[in-house]
Nucleic acid binder design. Structure first.
Lengths: 197, 197
DNA sequence: CAGTATAGTGTCCGCACGGTCACTTGTCAA
DNA sequence: TTGACAAGTGACCGTGCGGACACTATACTG
C-alpha cells in the first residue's frame, strides 16, 4: 500500500502547512498524526521540502480538476438567473471543500516565501476565476443576455468581490451565513445593472 | 537615545516579520541588521513576542493616522472626476508607502496564526476602506452625483477590485504599471455606470 | 524455505534559535 | 572624582528540529 500512505501523508501535510505554515510544521508531529514515526516519512519523501513540493503538485492538479484549465469551460448560462445559480453553486464548493480551503490558506500565507505558491496564489485569487468568467460573459453578451462592454473588465468587477469575501470567510468562518447573503445580494445587484431582459 | 533605538528596532522588525514571517524571523539577524547584538534587544523588549506586539501596536496607530478612524472622513468629492482623482491618490499611497506595503504582507501571512493580525487584516482588506467609501457614496448620492442605491453595496463593489489588485501588486510588483491602469479603467467604468452627470 | 524488497522504529547528530547572565563601556549628576 | 544608571557585549544553556543510520518486521517470490 505504498501509494496509499504517500497520499495520506500529503493530505495531512497540506493541513499542517496550511494551519502552521512551512516553518511552523514539524515532521515529528506530522508523522505522529499519521501514527508513524518521522523516520518513516523518509521512506516516501527525501526531505521536508520534497513533501512541500509534492503538496503543491497535488494542489495544482486538484485546482485544474475542479476549476478547469482555461480551455475547459462550464456550460454557458442561458439566463441571468442561471448565472447566479451557477455562481452560487461554485461558491458553495469553494467555501466548503476542505482541500480548497486549506489550499487557499497555504497559498495566502506562503506566497511571499515560495515562488510556486506565489504563482498559484495569483491563479487562485485573480486570474483563474477572472478568465473563466471573461469567456462566459463574452458568450452571454453574444447571446444578448448581458449589455455589451469589455467582458474582462466585467469579469473582474464580478469576481473581485467574491475573492474578497471568500478570504473574509476563511478569516472568520462563523460569519459565513452573512457573507453568503452579501455575495448573493451582490450577484442580484450585478445582473440588475448589467443584465438585459 | 533610548526611544530612538526602540523605534529603529520596530521599523526593522516590521520588515523582518513581513518578509520572513514571525517564525522565520530570528533575533540575531534582526539585531545584526541594526548593528547591535541580540542581547541588546533585550534591553528594550522582554521577548520576541513583545517585539511582535509592539510592531502591531505601531501598525494600528499608523493605519489610523493615515486612513482615518471611522469618524474622520476625507473631503467628500464634488464630482465623479474628483472621486477618481481622490481614489487614485489614495491608491498611490497604498501601493508605494513602504510601511503600508510591509503591514499588508505581515497581516496577510500571519492572519491565521495571530488573533490581532486577523482582526487588523479584516480592517485592511475589507471593512476599513469599505466603511469610508460607504459614507462618501451616501453623501454623493445625497448631492446627486451618484445614482441612488445601497451605498454599502456600492462601496463594496468599488473597493473589492482595489483590494484584489493591490494584493496582486504586492505579489508581482513588476506589474505595477499595468495594474494601475487596470484600476484606473475600472474607476472610469464605475462612474460611467453609477455616475449621474 | 531462503532470499529480498518494502515499510517502519529508535537512537543519535549537528545546528539554529530564544533567552539568560556576568561583564564592559559611556554619560551625566552630585 | 566617583558613583549610578542605561546601553551593549560575548559566552553560555536548553531545546526543538531536520536529517542519517543501523536495525526490525512483514510479505511476496522463486
Amino acid at each position: 500500500m505504498e501509494n496509499n500512505t504517500k497520499m495520506k501523508i500529503l493530505d495531512e501535510a497540506l493541513a499542517f502547512f496550511a494551519e502552521n505554515g512551512y516553518k511552523g510544521t514539524n515532521l515529528r508531529d506530522l508523522a505522529a498524526s499519521l501514527n508513524i514515526t518521522k523516520s518513516a516519512l523518509y521512506r516516501h519523501f527525501d526531505s521536508k521540502e520534497a513533501i512541500w513540493n509534492a503538496v503543491l503538485d497535488r494542489m495544482e492538479a486538484y485546482y485544474i480538476e475542479h476549476f478547469g484549465s482555461s480551455e475547459k469551460l462550464p456550460m454557458v448560462p442561458r439566463s441571468c438567473n442561471e448565472l447566479i445559480e451557477m455562481s452560487m453553486h461554485m461558491l458553495d464548493f469553494t467555501m466548503h471543500d476542505q482541500k480548497v480551503i486549506l489550499s487557499r490558506k497555504l497559498l495566502i500565507t506562503e506566497q511571499f516565501r515560495d515562488e510556486r505558491a506565489r504563482k498559484l496564489a495569483a491563479l487562485h485569487f485573480l486570474t483563474g476565476t477572472k478568465e473563466m468568467y471573461t469567456k462566459l460573459f463574452a458568450q452571454m453578451m453574444e447571446n444578448g443576455l448581458l449589455k455589451k462592454t469589455d467582458p474582462e473588465l466585467l469579469a473582474f468587477a464580478y469576481t473581485s468581490p467574491i475573492t474578497v469575501l471568500v478570504q473574509q470567510c476563511d478569516r472568520e468562518p462563523e460569519k459565513e451565513p452573512m457573507i453568503r447573503r452579501q455575495i448573493e445580494a451582490f450577484f442580484h445587484h450585478f445582473v440588475s445593472v448589467y443584465g438585459k431582459e
